[in-house]
């Protein structure tokens, strides 16, 4: 037996994204942000997107390109502090922003990827982040119901992939990528290196390839991946 080959071109990978889709995008700052897939989505042009991403990168970088091109209707995130452009769009009402506590965003995505309906959490109880959320009592304490998140598409950056889509990440580029790679109907991965089957030892796989649909190898890394000199 031989595991299937999921490698394809950037265009083939991005092709099926439609107007109105919900798109999860990995990354925390630059590390783990799939800069090339984001550029491809700008070129593709799908509009009215809901993005789920930890942060909005910085002006002129990462998902800011999607904000600049007006393709984003809604952003589910945790922090926009490094992107004044995103804050401007939010304040003017050009995009709708839903803030989540960072670990709760992670758990909502993990729950979506694990086939669950929601998680219960006491984070934010007694603050405005709890406003409008359903409260349930469990083991004598109140918890907020945090609905699971799933997406139509996830855009993932990995350090290494094999042909089947087994993934390995490096450094702090892991962040939301392994969670989002489990939580979308279609999972598209850009990898800095695509290796033969067995090229990532089974013990070293972070994301099992079973969750992955498309693997695209990055020929070169654009300067957006480089160290940011602020």
């Amino acid at each position: 037996m031989r595991l299937p080959d999921k490698t394809c071109t950037m265009e083939e990978a991005i092709f099926g994204i439609r107007d109105g889709d919900t798109v999860m995008i990995g990354g925390f700052g630059v590390p783990g942000t799939p800069m090339t897939l984001i550029r491809a989505l700008v070129d593709h042009g799908a509009r009215d997107l809901t993005l789920i991403k930890n942060d909005a990168n910085e002006p002129g970088m990462g998902i800011d390109h999607l904000l600049q091109s007006g393709q984003v209707a809604r952003l589910i995130t945790t922090h926009l502090g490094l992107n004044s452009h995103a804050i401007g769009l939010m304040n003017s009402g050009a995009i709708q922003v839903e803030f989540n506590a960072q670990g709760i965003l992670a758990e909502r995505i993990r729950a979506g990827g694990a086939g669950l309906g929601a998680v219960l959490s006491d984070i934010g109880i007694g603050t405005e982040l709890a406003a409008g959320k359903q409260v349930v009592e469990m083991n004598g304490s109140p918890y907020l119901v945090e609905p699971a998140l799933r997406a139509d598409v996830a855009l993932i950056h990995a350090d290494r992939a094999d042909l089947f889509g087994n993934l390995a990440y490096v450094g702090t580029a892991q962040n939301f990528n392994p969670l989002m790679a489990m939580a979308a109907r279609r999972v598209i991965v850009e990898a800095e290196a695509v290796l033969p089957l067995g090229g990532i030892a089974a013990n070293d796989v972070h994301t099992p390839g079973v969750f992955v649909d498309h693997v695209v190898e990055l020929e070169t890394l654009s300067k957006e991946y480089a160290v940011v000199q602020r």
């Binding site: 942060d55 995130t77 945790t78 922090h79 926009l80 502090g81 804050i87 939010m90 922003v97 803030f99 506590a101 960072q102 670990g103 709760i104 006491d122 984070i123 934010g124 603050t127 982040l129």
Partner: peptide, 14 residues
């Protein structure tokens, strides 16, 4: 100023 709390709520609460 409303950039979002990031992980600050969980740090403060837990």
């Amino acid at each position: 100023f409303s950039p979002g709390a990031g992980g600050g709520i969980e740090l403060a609460q837990k």
